[in-house]
Each structure stands twice: as structure tokens, then as C-alpha cells.
Amino acid sequence: MVLESLPWRQASTPPDPFEPTPILHLVLQAPLKFVLYHAYHLITSLRSAPSPSKPPIRIVCISDTHGLTVDEIPDGDILIHAGDMTVDGSIPEIQRQVDWLSSLPHKEIVVISGNHDTYLDPRTRPLLREDQRSGTIDWKRVYYLQHRKLSLIMAVEPNNAVGEETHLLGRETKHRKLRIYGAPQIPACGDMGVHAFQYPRGRDAWSETVPEDTDILVTHGPPKYHMDLSLPHGMGCEHLAKEVKRVSPTLHVFGHVHWGAGQEVVWWDGCHSAYEEGMSIRPRWFRGLMSPWLWWSTFRVVYRGLRGLLWDKVWGGEGPSPTILVNAAQMQGNTGKLGNPIQVVDI
């Protein structure tokens, strides 16, 4: 996310697409799409949560700390930071974040970059002063992923919900392999020459880039229409959304859009397809109320969503393998303060 003159921006600036649009304005601007959005999220929220594997592995997710540190982080097996560790992106600022992260008690720590982590993108590195970009970063025990895949073998106790490692003789342990892929690129959210890892909005920077066997995908930006301030237009990437659907990882962690923080489960079914198709329609007349395609998408979301809900709750059927989406942003809007809940997922 672009933090204009942290911690606050001037009231006279144009509306910020990274700030929530007032509900009344959304209802007046796109009433049918407003119904579509809330119908989809209500129905999918009623479905049974996906069960973690046995033994489970606990993933603690944070993002967008912007040079600050979190006082209390829940225990877990793997800590993931989904980018924007810094504000200016200098080596000293990145190193302070790495030192903090490496001091945490989690067994494994995985990090990717964000658009504020200037030094880590060779294209924006020259913008830093010489004293800000001279030297190297000591990553210590932190795994830094930049278009890179990491395989971890986790030793976990079968009866431990947190998945604590053990070396005690006579105690049974099991091993699970997790494949994590991290990539930082985002659709342009500011000056292409200032913010790191940007590509022109609308360009496909994702298709066939994520390994098919990925269990955990870590990106800085969200997939379009999911935890990205989806109304009225969404700030995520439509090509990333297609890539996530193609790979269908167990977990997708991201940040960037601070106000989108939280969790969402995506079931790759007809309800989801109808939702994304409907959200992609740009109403042209009477704010979408005269669009037959938008009405059709809304009907399909309700019909396919209720059918999936009945299959889940009444008949106990298993749907397609879902993906848990986590927007782990810690920064609260453009306030310059951390405070969004830390996201914890058992997989």
C-alpha cells in the first residue's frame, strides 16, 4: 500500500482507493453489486470451516509492519511476513525488521518484499542514498523468498494442536512437508519509478508462475475481489486471482490493502465463479439495475451458494478443496499505527 506522508495524509487530497468507501455511497453507486457482494460472503461464511491435516501445523501471518514491531505474537510453527517490512526500504531499516523477526520463537520464519521495501528491487534500489544501500542484509535464520520456492520438513507431535517440535526419546513424531512459494509483484499503486515490484495495472504478471504443488502461496497484494476493498472496484489483481484458482493452495497469505485484513475461505465452485464474474461487470446504466448479466450473476451466487450450503450442512458432502485467504496487514489504514488482529491458521 502507498503510505502518503506517514502517518496521515492531507484532507484535501483526492479520494484514496485504499480507503473504504462509505456504505451509503456504495449502495447508491452500485446497489446490485452491493447485494451480490454481501450475499456471496454471507453464504460462504455459513459453510463448515476446512479441517486441518493431522497433525496440524500452525501458521502465524503478519504483513505491512512498516518499520514497526508487534509486541505480542501468538506461538506457532511458521511465521510468515507478507511484505512492506519498512517505510523507506533502506538496508538499515530492513535489517532492523530482520533482527526482530529472527528473535521470535517460531521454528521457521518466511518473508517476502512489498512495494515499500525499496532496496530489494534492483529497479528502485538506485533511489536510495548511498548510505542507505551500501552493505548487505544479514537474513540470519529468516527465509527470504523472491520468486522462489521453499520446502520445509516439519517435525510435529500428532496430538499437539500447535505442532510443537520434540526431540524426546520415546515420543512419537510425524513429519510433514510444506512447499511455500513467495512473490512480491503488485499492480501499480503509485509512481512506477518510486515503489518497488510494480507492474502496470492490467498486465498479466502471474500466469503459470506459481508451482502447481504449492501448499502456501505468499504474495504482497491480494487477488482481485477478495479482501481488497472489493467495492466498488477492488484493488487486487485479476491475473493473480486466476493463478490462485489454478494452483488452489491450502493457504494464500498477503497484505498491502490494510483495510482488508482478516480471513476468508474460498470454495472453488460455481458460486465463486458467479461472484467473480458479477464483480467484474462495470455497470453502465442505472447503476447496474438494468444489467441482465449482473442480475444473472447475483441469482447464480444465491442459487449455487445455497446448494453448496445444503450439500455441506444437510447431506454432509465434501466440496472442492478450498483455499484459506489471509490478509495479514498489521497497519490500520493510513494511521501509521499497528493494531489489526494477527491472523493464525492451522493447516
Rank of each mutant, 00 (worst) to 15 (best):
V98W: 02
V35Q: 06
L325P: 06
L309R: 01
G319W: 10
I43S: 04
L120A: 04
Y144P: 01
F286K: 07
I324T: 15
H256N: 13
G336D: 09
L338G: 08
P232E: 13
M85H: 05
P222W: 10
N115Q: 05
E277T: 12
E165H: 09
A205W: 10
S297H: 05
D269I: 07
L68S: 14
Y143T: 03
Y119P: 05
D88P: 00
H38A: 04
K337W: 11
Y275C: 02
N159A: 07
W100G: 05
A329I: 09
S45W: 05
D228P: 05
G336H: 10
V35P: 04
P283L: 01
H116T: 02
V60Q: 02
G262D: 00
E93W: 02
P184E: 06
G305A: 12
P50D: 04
M154F: 02
P232A: 13
L169C: 11
T250Q: 13
E93M: 02
R171V: 15
E318I: 09
S207K: 13
L104D: 02
R96Q: 12
V314A: 13
P292R: 10
I94P: 06
R282H: 11
R171E: 12
C189W: 03
W285F: 12
L294V: 01
L128K: 05
P187T: 03
T136W: 12
M192V: 03
G339A: 09
A39C: 15
P184Q: 07
D204T: 11
S321K: 13
T173N: 06
L289R: 06
S53G: 11
G317Q: 15
G89C: 04
V87S: 08
I59S: 03
H252A: 06
I342M: 05
L325E: 09
I43F: 04
G317T: 10
V218Y: 00
G336L: 09
W206P: 04
H167G: 10
Q343S: 08
S51C: 10
P320I: 06
V60I: 03
S45V: 00
Q263G: 05
L101V: 07
T65D: 00
H25E: 15
R171S: 11
I59V: 15
D121C: 05
R300V: 00
R9S: 15
W295K: 02
L46M: 14
K174T: 10
V156S: 15
T335V: 12
V98I: 15
H175V: 09
S63R: 04
